[in-house]
Simulated scan of single mutants.
Amino acid sequence: MAGSSGKSVVGRFGVHLAVLFFVALWTVPTLGILVSSLRDKDQIIASGWWTALTSSTRTEAGRLGTAADQVEKDGRFQIAGNLFEEGESRKITAFGTRSQEPTRYKAGEVADLGDGETLQVNEDGSYVYASPKAFEGERGRRVYYSASSPPKFTTQNYRTVLFSEGIGRSFLNSLTVTIPATVIPILIAAFAAYALAWMRFPGRALLIAVIIGLLVVPLQMSLIPLLKLYNGVGTFFGVPSKTYLGIWLAHTGFGLPFAIYLLRSYIAGLPREIMESARIDGASDFEIFVKIVLPLSFPVLASFAIFQFLWVWNDLLVAMVFLGTEADQIVLTAKLNALLGSRGGDWEILTTSAFVTIIVPLIVFFSLQRYFVRGLLAGSVKGG
């Protein structure tokens, strides 16, 4: 049955379902990062983020007390203690003495280990290890157990990331890199896009073809030639190689092809009558660009600003190549990478680091999102 807009109820319902599906597709991973960033390290290892509100179970290994802890009682030697540290609220469900059978016995059961030796491990982690002979040796016997832990959330990961030395400085360094590297390509691309859309000059079609071709050039292929060129020019003029100017120019070069292509598609779709009326009134190309084209092009400028900001903010490779590793230059992504360690020993802060890095891009996106789709689609129907 068709509605007043000409679309069937089933069609509209299908569109809504599709929208909800894609919203969930993008939201669920972000929710997972947030939940994982607040979980305890041991629980991250034991279970996925979707089980954060339930108890998690994992198999661990521990050691019983040594011969120095034994006492004689009723003709038997006993070692008593607790596998948990004081204050832990976990509960043991099963235990064993071999890695092949870590859950052979239930908690509270008295396990016969042979030669008269027995071991009892209770739910609260307390144990009694008994033998008819005196225990010997300086190391306690290894025992395996399966323990369940209640849901536990902590802000320790955030304290580790946010209060680590140099994080604040690296955050400012990232802003120092990202803001100019977003604004400069927009300024250059806007002029170029207007010229390619509304001005006629020799080689115009060839320039457009070259720009489209540059869209498919991988960044990694151009890094080394660009770095050699920049270092050569810097040496000639006596300019240091590891500067903010270098990374601004690098990101500008990498972002310009897409910026010009996107902006030209939009500007070429602006009404021709407005341009012709302005020219009849005596306006120059510069006046038309500044007073008419730029105000009308704000949606597409905001769209590209979102893209460019995200690319530069999340960049690590270009920053490592064109910037130094000193405290006054290292960007946030490089600093967080250093926090993980060369072997990834502190990997539990990975989700926290990821969530910290997406906060600023989310603010930028939601501030400009009303222009996002309009800017991307406005030039896709018609073009010059």
Rank of each mutant, 00 (worst) to 15 (best):
S148I: 06
T155L: 15
A147P: 07
T118L: 10
F135H: 13
S148D: 12
E117C: 09
A147H: 09
D112Y: 11
A111D: 12
F163Q: 12
V110Y: 03
V161C: 00
A111N: 12
E123P: 00
G140C: 02
Y145Q: 02
G137W: 00
R142C: 04
V143D: 08
S126R: 02
V121Y: 04
P132C: 13
Y127F: 10
T160Q: 14
G125H: 02
K152M: 11
N122G: 00
R139A: 11
T155M: 15
V161P: 02
V121F: 03
F153Y: 14
A147N: 08
N157H: 13
S131A: 10
G137S: 07
V110P: 01
E136H: 05
K152L: 15
N157T: 09
V128H: 02
D115I: 14
S164K: 14
V121R: 05
S148V: 11
A111W: 12
K152G: 05
R141V: 06
G140V: 03
S164D: 14
V143E: 04
A130F: 05
A111M: 07
V128I: 14
E117M: 14
T160M: 11
G116L: 11
S148H: 06
D112V: 10
S149I: 04
P132L: 09
R142Y: 08
F135L: 09
L119M: 09
K133G: 12
A130I: 10
T160R: 12
R159V: 08
T118C: 06
R139V: 05
A111Q: 11
A147L: 09
V128N: 11
Y145A: 03
T118Q: 13
T154G: 01
T154S: 15
S148K: 08
E123K: 12
L113G: 03
A130K: 06
S126E: 03
R142I: 11
G140S: 06
L119F: 13
E138L: 13
Q156P: 01
L162D: 01
S131C: 15
S126H: 05
S164T: 02
Y127H: 00
T118A: 12
S131R: 13
A134F: 08
F135C: 12
S126A: 07
K152Y: 04
T155R: 05
Y158R: 00
Y129F: 15
F135A: 09
A130M: 07
Y158L: 08
G125E: 02
L119H: 10
S146Y: 05
T154Y: 04
Y145R: 00
S131N: 14
E138Y: 04
P151A: 04
R141A: 14
P132T: 10
Y127D: 00
S131T: 09
D112F: 10
S126Y: 03
V110S: 11
T155E: 01
V128T: 13
E117P: 04
S131I: 10
N157W: 05
P132M: 09
Q156E: 15
T118N: 08
S164E: 14
D112S: 10
P132R: 06
K152C: 03
A134P: 10
S164Y: 04
A147D: 07
T155C: 08
S148Y: 05
R159Q: 15
N122Y: 08
E123R: 06
V121N: 03
E117N: 09
Y145N: 00
F163D: 11
P150C: 04
T118I: 05
A134S: 14
R139F: 11
T154K: 02
